[in-house]
Design a protein around this nucleic acid. Structure first.
Length: 749
DNA sequence: TTCGCGGCGTC
DNA sequence: CTCGGAG
DNA sequence: CTCCGAGGACGCCGCGAA
């Protein structure tokens, strides 16, 4: 169907100034791909005709074919981009970096996957013990999220380490970062100006993982200094075998170890490769490896089967610590039997796709039954519980998270699988009051929402956020929380994710008892008509919710399958529908240099509203989304013309050194911006003197601001005024206030 | 001991 | 969380 | 459609300087 992926450097007749590296892959890679592309006929002989030895002839599904094409081509020439190391020895970090570099140089997803899985195969073949750390380094992790291991390293410490390792001043490093927009490349550049003194031992994946892990676990006095020292050690050992200077404008800096070390520390590999792709690649690698051990080539159907197995298993049991050993031991095709959903290990929650109108929802679900639920404005919470008197036990891989609760043990996880058990001891303490006697084990999908005990209603998200996060004692919980449950994934020893939502919901209602202010079922409605939905949406907003979730109710499609049908739920948020009410016209006061793919343009901007009373511009938010690449180019061109040395005296902005934009502008351009909500802000100044904040210290800012368009027709002094912003804030507050009209007095809380 | 700042999580 | 780009 | 990586406000936490 498609042209074979061109080699990375197919610049026409660009002389033979080739880099050795980009060459390497070409001969083996392109030749078989092209020949195969020839034989394309729109056929559907469906069945996989014999795999081995005749991969030239089969004509399966088009997509699968394309995929296998790349896969096969990379395997055909057995030659790996990085030569084999000795079997059983630790995997060289350089080998991983070589793969990273190849991945980084293409945007083709099939090619990325091919590079990735080819390398994983090599690891499986030579040093399978290193598979786990290899995968972890690929997805920029050190351990599962619920382990709570954080590097505690940011840009500033990395810059310090780079400076000290290479003998360059911090100021120079900072300057480079502004221009280059990638600390990894800054590290490469810094290093290449420094002749290598002597060669330390080459880094291995194991050693890097260990080193990073030790950085992550450092605490206490002088921890930052020790972290910097450790980084310096790693950086000094990086690229031991590289020869001299590297041109960072070429091949994105090449396979430099320092570059990827730094990017790992930043938490962004920026390869175009992330977890989803790694999982698929891992499946491909595994199935190919298993076949190779029998002297075979995997069949297309086995490849597809493996991919779907691993995806499904991962979505139910997202723990490489469990999956990888099980996979190596039992084979990937048997993985399902060994890795099932189990209480104690958080599973990936199902996510929803944003929707712009109710009609869009109706289109999507045409001919199917669906259901609507309030979308609560809180924090996703996955509650796991196992009663002691059952045969089961809460998986011990999270033992620190579990808590004794009533007659069982329980834990709570966040949307991103972080352990929230220490944050919500109050939920866990009350859990026995809403779990029915006959309910012995479960995994619940819910939203925890701040709760006003007096008024018996939900409070805004900003309130929830002020809760303590660590070592919370039930006695000093200030912000009460109510759990709103909307799905059930596991019940009494059995996963129920494959049942329809209608069935799961029935089980949910049957297994738990609502307790006011502690536990409730998400308000739901099964009406299918547009006006019913509209009414329900209005009600949800009045009840301080963000809008609605709309979900398929019956049939296979309604199963809980995070990875496969990840966007099978829809969300309707009020700010999409309510039109101009959430739209502001703001003045551009400053900008920030972009990073990564925004290098060389402004990546974000500082916006303000206008205060006609004082004739000042009061900052209200930064903005960095909603721009197309073309628009960013134009804006950079236009705005760089009106850069000024320092902010105008009539700019009201935060004085914190941290919050200053990289450049300031004349007040000239007005942009239309959309927002979901207005928030009280410690940082921004908008409407500060309008009496919105009782303490008079806070301004107003925007939640989820995004760029809509340039307002050429407006002058800066025609922008949204501070008073208007304040009015919007008051209006938003009044929607949820208990008494109907006009509650605009300033008694708060 | 207190406070500012950077990191990291939530949305 | 929102958004745009690539495949 | 899926996946990825640009970017947002905000508040707790830990470290280190004041």
């Amino acid at each position: 169907m498609e042209e074979a992926p061109p080699p990375p450097d197919t610049k026409k007749a660009e002389e033979s100034s080739t880099t050795a590296s980009s060459r390497k892959l070409d001969p083996e890679a392109t030749v078989p791909m092209k020949t195969e592309a020839e034989g394309e006929s729109p056929e559907s002989s469906s069945e996989v005709e014999d795999e081995e030895l005749q991969d030239e002839e089969e004509k399966p599904e088009v997509a699968a074919k394309a995929r296998q094409k790349v896969q096969a081509s990379l395997e055909a020439g057995v030659k790996h981009p990085y030569p084999d190391w000795k079997p059983g020895e630790p995997v060289p970090y350089a080998a991983l970096c070589k793969t990273f570099s190849l991945i980084e140089l293409t945007t083709k997803r099939l090619e990325i996957m091919a590079h990735c899985s080819l390398f994983l195969r090599q690891v499986l073949r030579l040093t399978p013990d290193d598979l786990l750390p290899t995968v972890l380094l690929m997805i920029n992790k050190l351990a599962p999220d619920y382990a709570g291991i954080e590097l505690g390293i940011g840009e500033s410490l990395i810059m310090k380490a780079i400076g000290e390792t290479t003998g360059r001043s911090l100021a120079v490093i900072k300057q480079d970062q502004k221009e280059i927009g990638d600390l990894g490349l800054v590290a490469v550049k810094s290093r290449s100006t420094q002749p290598t003194m002597f060669k330390p031992k080459a880094l291995t994946i194991r050693a890097v993982h260990k080193g990073l892990m030790s950085i992550a676990t450092m605490t206490g006095n002088g921890a930052q200094g020790r972290k910097v020292d450790s980084i310096k050690k790693l950086l000094s050992a990086a690229d031991a075998n590289s020869s001299g200077k590297v041109d960072i404008t070429k091949d994105k800096g090449g396979p430099s170890e320092a570059k990827y070390l730094v990017r790992f520390l930043e938490g962004k590999l920026r390869l175009g490769l992330a977890e989803k792709t790694v999982i698929v690649s891992l499946a491909q690698a595994m199935v190919a490896h298993e076949a190779a051990q029998k002297g075979k080539v995997p069949s297309t159907s086995d490849i597809e089967k493996s991919e779907s197995i691993l995806k499904a298993v991962y979505s139910e049991l997202p723990s490489y610590e469990v999956i990888i050993p099980a996979m190596v031991e039992h084979g990937i095709l048997n993985l399902r039997e060994h890795c099932k959903l189990r209480p104690g290990v958080p599973l990936k929650p199902m996510l929803a796709k944003p929707t712009k109108a109710i009609t869009e929802v109706l289109d999507r679900f045409e001919g199917q039954t669906f259901t609507c639920e309030y979308k609560y404005d809180g924090e996703r919470a996955q509650i796991h519980y196992v009663a002691k008197d059952t045969g089961e036990s809460l998986s011990q891989s999270t033992s620190s998270a579990t808590k004794e609760v009533g007659k069982g043990v329980a834990s709570i996880f966040s949307r991103n699988s972080e352990d929230l058990s220490k944050k919500y001891p109050d939920i866990l303490a009350k859990l026995p009051t809403w779990v029915k006697e006959e309910t012995k084990s479960f995994v619940l999908d819910c939203e925890s929402v701040a709760w006003d005990v007096q008024e018996k209603k939900v409070l805004p998200f900003q309130q929830l956020m002020t809760r303590k996060k660590k070592d919370v004692k039930i006695e000093d919980v200030k912000v009460k929380v109510c759990v709103f449950a909307f799905d059930l994934l596991y019940l009494n020893g059995e996963p129920v994710v494959e049942k329809s939502l209608r069935e799961r919901r029935e089980l949910l209602y049957k297994s738990f008892t609502p307790v006011e202010g502690e536990f409730a079922f998400a308000t739901a409605m099964n009406g299918q008509e547009l006006d019913e939905i509209q009414t329900f949406l209005d009600e949800s907003v009045k009840a301080s919710c963000e809008g609605l979730m709309v979900k398929m109710l019956d049939g296979e499609e309604s199963g809980y399958e995070p990875s496969k049908r990840s966007r099978n739920w829809l969300k309707i948020k009020k700010d999409y529908l309510s039109g101009i009410g959430d739209s502001l016209d703001l003045v551009v006061l400053g900008a920030y240099h972009g990073k990564g793919k925004r290098t060389s343009v402004y990546g974000a901007f500082l916006l303000a509203c206008y205060n006609p009373g004082t004739d000042t511009y009061e900052t209200v938010c930064n903005i960095g989304t909603g721009f197309s690449e073309a628009v960013l180019e134009e804006l950079h061109k236009a705005l760089s013309q009106i850069v000024i040395e320092r902010p105008k005296p009539f700019y009201a902005h935060s004085s914190g050194g941290q919050h200053q934009p990289d450049v300031w502008f004349e007040p000239r351009y007005v942009w239309e911006v959309k927002t979901a909500d207005l928030t009280l802000s410690p940082r921004y100044k908008a409407g500060m003197k309008e009496g919105v904040d009782p303490s008079g210290e806070k301004g107003i800012s925007l939640r989820f601001p995004r760029f809509i368009r340039v307002r050429d027709d407006k002058k800066p002094d025609e922008a949204t005024t501070s008073r208007q912003v304040a009015e919007m804030y008051r209006k938003q507050e009044s929607v949820t206030k208990s008494k109907g009209p006009a509650v605009d007095d300033d008694f708060e809380y």
